[in-house]
Amino acid sequence: MSGQVLDRVDHPPTGVDEDPGGFDLRAPDGTRYRVDLTTEVLDPHNPLLAGHLAARRVVAFVSPTVDRLHGHRLRAYLEAHTGPGQWTLHVIRTGEHHKTLAAAERVCALAKADGLDRHGVMLAVGGGIVADVVGFAASIYARGVRYVKVNTTLVGQVDVGVGVKTGVNALQTKNMFGAYHPAHASLNDPAFLRTLPHREIRCGLAEIVKMAVILDGDLFRTLEEHPDAFRRPGGDGELETYVLRTSMRLMMEELCPNLQEHELARLVDFGHTFSPVVETAGGHRLEHGEAVAVDMALSAHLARLLGLADEETCARVVGLLRRIGLPVFDPGTCTPGLMTQALRASWQRRGRKLHLVVPTTIGKAAFVRELEDVPGDVLEAALRDLAADGERGDA
């Protein structure tokens, strides 16, 4: 080795880089992935998806709704870009009741029957549940195979589609089984959002409000001015592009340094302390985004009562959720008993620390670290105030 000069290897810096076509993430642990933004992803003349499939064996999975709306285009695309007999497509059931270990096992069984090997690709085209189930199946199939997701819902594009978590519900607990398994590619096409019912758009907006409250006052003010974003006639212009890209960037930047959640205190858990119980105890009567909205409203009232946020901040958070059309109170689950149960479940899940995220002002948030920092009388007062908000919303 004497006299030799060894070249130093420079690794790209960690963080999130944005370009016109999407976002690149490099985490401190070396994990790298990209989220693409494109138009007409299923047009045979768009090579983006085909490039990620790379002539591999493809087993595709779609929801019944996606199959009805886009299945013919997806089949035509796969026919145009893969060899004869190199792809199959299956329709899988969606809804939280079908987000189970049995569903992931069925995906694996279908893939095995179709001859998927370690070099093949599972392709998930749909919303967050399809991505979660297929992603988890890909993480355990033959100890891990590639998967590609094409995100067709707003929740999928700003939340599930930009992270690395996969999972299914089990043991009466949301996402009890799961894995950190980055997608080989995650593709977002805003054109899909035009086919969504307004309820699905509102659920996606709940996740966007979450990011605005904790990190970006400008985004929050934009939503206050345009609570009908993504639901306006012809609403796929500059406003929607700004909201979509900003939400994606904020989420990826917040996830990047703690991608596998070694640190259990996470700002992106705003709206995700009470919501799992609101969902499960309510028999999934509320969609995920609706339960998150109820959670954010309750957390805002707790912040006010604990002296961490002023009246105006609480009123703006709750007011925006109501203007979007999201629920801020659920009589069937927003009871002192169930919400205390939710606090204890989060405390246990987060390493016996509560880490409840609450807004301090618009664009900033803090943690309530200990379970005893949320006294029972304060929780009950917050629920009473929340019920009053819900009644005003019904009036």
Rank of each mutant, 00 (worst) to 15 (best):
H119L: 14
H119V: 07
H119G: 14
H119D: 15
G120Y: 08
G120L: 07
G120H: 09
V121K: 06
V121E: 10
V121Y: 06
M122N: 03
M122Q: 10
M122H: 04
M122L: 15
L123Q: 08
L123V: 13
L123A: 12
L123M: 13
A124H: 12
A124C: 12
A124S: 15
A124G: 12
A124V: 13
A124N: 14
V125G: 02
V125D: 00
V125Y: 05
V125I: 14
V125P: 02
G126Y: 10
G126I: 12
G126H: 13
G126P: 05
G126A: 07
G126L: 11
G127S: 09
G127L: 06
G127H: 01
G128H: 07
G128N: 10
G128P: 11
G128T: 14
G128W: 05
I129M: 13
I129E: 11
I129D: 00
I129L: 15
I129Q: 04
V130L: 05
V130W: 08
V130C: 08
V130T: 15
A131S: 15
A131G: 15
A131I: 08
D132M: 10
D132Y: 08
D132N: 15
D132K: 04
D132I: 11
V133G: 01
V133C: 02
V134M: 01
V134S: 01
V134C: 03
V134A: 00
G135H: 03
G135F: 03
G135Q: 03
G135W: 05
F136W: 09
F136Q: 01
A137I: 00
A137S: 11
A137E: 05
A138K: 01
A138I: 05
A138S: 13
A138P: 06
S139G: 01
S139C: 02
S139I: 05
S139F: 05
S139L: 02
I140L: 05
I140A: 06
I140Q: 03
I140W: 00
Y141H: 12
Y141I: 01
Y141N: 08
Y141T: 04
Y141W: 06
Y141C: 06
Y141L: 13
A142G: 00
A142S: 05
A142H: 14
A142I: 09
A142C: 02
R143N: 09
R143L: 06
R143Y: 10
R143I: 07
R143K: 14
R143T: 09
G144H: 10
G144Y: 09
G144I: 12
G144L: 11
V145G: 08
V145E: 07
V145Y: 01
V145H: 06
V145L: 09
R146A: 15
R146I: 00
R146G: 14
R146M: 06
R146V: 00
R146K: 13
Y147W: 15
Y147M: 04
V148Y: 04
V148P: 02
K149H: 07
K149R: 13
K149E: 12
K149C: 11
K149G: 10
V150R: 08
V150Y: 08
V150P: 00
V150H: 11
V150A: 05
N151I: 00
N151M: 07
N151K: 01
N151C: 15
N151G: 10
N151Q: 14
N151S: 15
N151V: 04
N151D: 15
N151R: 05
N151W: 04
N151F: 01
T152S: 11
T152I: 07
T152D: 12
T153V: 13
L154C: 08
L154E: 10
L154W: 09
L154P: 13
